[in-house]
Nucleic acid binder design. Structure first.
Lengths: 221, 221
DNA sequence: CCCGCACATATTGTCGACAACTTCGATCCA
DNA sequence: TGGATCGAAGTTGTCGACAATATGTGCGGG
């Protein structure tokens, strides 16, 4: 599948990326129904394009579909979060381990630069908002694993749902600085080619992150 | 997504299941091109149905698609196998651990019965061919994890590709008996609710299995 | 008053036609 | 002869019409 929006060539590609963005950022609310006709007028494309987009959103676990009934955006629930992060911990931990093994020195340097620029933002008081894609720490580590199946499972399968939870519930508060430090330590381990440590630190980081979001999710209820 | 063929209600569902079966079993050869028109006449449905089916096959990693060019069945390669099994080991290991935690006593009993009936087949000299779905050991353990994301990632994401390698390259020879014993030990650990052992035994079983298929794949070249 | 049935309405599922694009081969020019 | 360009054929992408299915409403019977 495609990874970033500049690779979009067909109308279905573009609509899919736009819809995904709107869902992740809450422009289209969680748990709301998706009407094909409504979307097709709003996004100015035919229904086939909308249908194909919805199909792809389903593989991202961002919408659920029932035959002859329709599709709706997933709901953000504590149970869903726990199950998602359980899988995420295992897979991203593995990604960190493989990244420590397989990333090139150049890529590790770039990752360090990226973190430095993030550091500026954190210091300047800007929120530590992670863009989707290339500018996101987790994204880089995942790609760094160099395992096509792992990359696809993570990016096409759960990455955007994770972002949905993060964006809609978890990107504020004092956790920002803490998270940044945790990222730094993971990169350190990757730089040292310490596979086991990289995996362990990543798992721990994700576990902390889950606790933080869980709190917000329960509080909101 | 749907898990078994009896849940298929639309033409797209049925066509998808049929196509998936034909690809996994090699009726449609690995690495061959999929023509929408050809398939739509052969399976007696419109092109939209074929297109939707191909989209779903893409999420199973059974076909790859390029915009304005078309789709083709994946090729079975040693590199692909290694990357696939790397992910599989991690995820199915996790599934075994969660299964040891979350399966009901009833489900564990059923799993034991299933293995007994498999034992008959092995003893009678029938090949230890694993049906897709409910009759497959791995399938049961995955469902036993009770983690929706893990289940979907495995079943919708890599399970059928694993089967494709197994069916087309690895289901013969003396490994059959060995594999059966390994299955038995995993179930034993699950019965004892020994999470760590279940994970470890499953990982080891998958690792052995990979070596076996790898041999065949290299030999075939 | 409640339950079930039938009809009307709205939504999704499927189809074939047309548009856009890629590919391959022939032709032309240097 | 080699290479580029143009054109034809075939494939995929997109669209709107029609069919099939679910949902909501009102009526009638119990």
């Amino acid at each position: 599948m495609l990874f970033s929006i500049d690779q979009a060539v067909t109308a279905a590609d573009k609509t899919f990326f736009q819809l995904r963005k709107d869902i992740v950022e809450g422009v289209i609310p969680a748990d709301s129904k998706l009407s094909e006709i409504e979307l097709s007028t709003k996004y100015a494309v035919g229904r086939s394009v909308i249908r194909e987009s919805i199909n792809r959103l389903e593989t991202c676990h961002l919408v659920e579909r029932k035959a002859n009934v329709g599709a709706r955006v997933v709901a953000l629930t504590p149970e869903g979060l726990v199950e998602l992060y359980e899988v995420r911990e295992s897979l991203e931990g593995m990604a960190a381990r493989l990244a420590a093994e397989n990333m090139t020195d150049q890529e590790i340097n770039d990752l360090n630069s990226l973190l430095s620029s993030h550091f500026q933002e954190v210091k300047d008081g800007d929120s530590y908002y992670q863009e989707a894609g290339d500018l996101d720490f987790h994204y880089r580590v995942i790609l760094g694993s160099k395992n096509k199946h792992l990359i696809s499972t993570l990016i096409d399968g759960i990455y955007h749902l994770v972002r949905m939870y993060r964006v809609q519930l978890g990107m504020t508060g004092p956790r920002v600085t803490t998270a940044f430090d945790e990222h730094k330590h993971v990169v350190q381990a990757i730089s040292n080619r310490d596979q086991e440590l990289a995996e362990m630190l990543m798992r721990r980081h994700i576990s902390y992150s889950r606790l933080n979001i869980e709190k917000k999710l329960v509080a909101k209820k």
